[in-house]
Amino acid sequence: MLSVPRHYKRAQALCHRDGVRDTPTLDRCVPGCGNIIRADEHAAQLRECAEFLDKRAAFAARPIGDRFRANAARLRDLADTHDRTRITLEDAT
């Protein structure tokens, strides 16, 4: 099932807080921005990255491993949020 992307709204863009640019700036992207667009493929990639981090955590020193696991959990939360809040083609009609 494909997600329907939302349209970019400059007023909501957290990356535009400097008021200089007129286009989105990916290097200033903020995860909580109202303009974020994720497709189902992106959610799957987030989960794959989380799995990779968990595997690395198993072989890392405890503080680093804990950080890897925390980042993996954050990525899974983002993917889960996408799954719960996505707008599908069926929803849009």
Rank of each mutant, 00 (worst) to 15 (best):
C33V: 15
L2E: 14
A11Q: 15
A73H: 06
H42M: 10
P63L: 08
T85Q: 15
A79P: 02
E90T: 14
A58K: 12
H16M: 11
E48T: 04
K9N: 06
T23N: 11
E51F: 05
D80N: 07
L2I: 15
L89Y: 10
T85Y: 02
L2W: 07
G65V: 07
A50V: 01
R21Y: 08
L26N: 11
H82K: 12
Q45E: 06
N35M: 13
D27N: 14
A79F: 04
R76M: 01
F59N: 08
C33H: 02
L78K: 12
D83L: 06
L46W: 00
A50P: 00
A73G: 11
D77Q: 10
G19D: 10
R6T: 05
A72S: 11
G34Y: 15
R28P: 02
R10T: 11
D54W: 00
K9T: 09
I87P: 01
E90H: 15
P31Q: 04
L78Q: 14
H7C: 12
L26V: 08
D77W: 03
L78S: 13
D27W: 12
C29G: 05
H7D: 15
P5F: 06
T81D: 13
A43L: 02
L26S: 07
A60V: 00
D83H: 08
R86P: 01
R10Q: 14
R84S: 13
D27Y: 12
L2T: 14
R67Y: 03
R67V: 05
R84T: 08
D77R: 03
R69I: 02
L46R: 00
L46D: 04
T81Q: 09
L46N: 02
G65N: 01
M1H: 05
I37G: 03
R17V: 13
L89T: 11
R69Y: 03
A72T: 06
A43P: 00
A11L: 13
Q12C: 10
A60C: 03
D66G: 03
T23Y: 07
A61N: 10
D91S: 13
D18R: 14
A60I: 00
S3W: 00
D77A: 11
C49W: 05
H16C: 02
P24Q: 06
F68K: 06
E41G: 11
S3E: 02
T25F: 05
R74H: 10
A60P: 00
M1Y: 08
H7L: 14
H7Q: 15
A39I: 01
T93A: 14
R6V: 04
A72Y: 04
R28E: 10
A61K: 00
A61H: 07
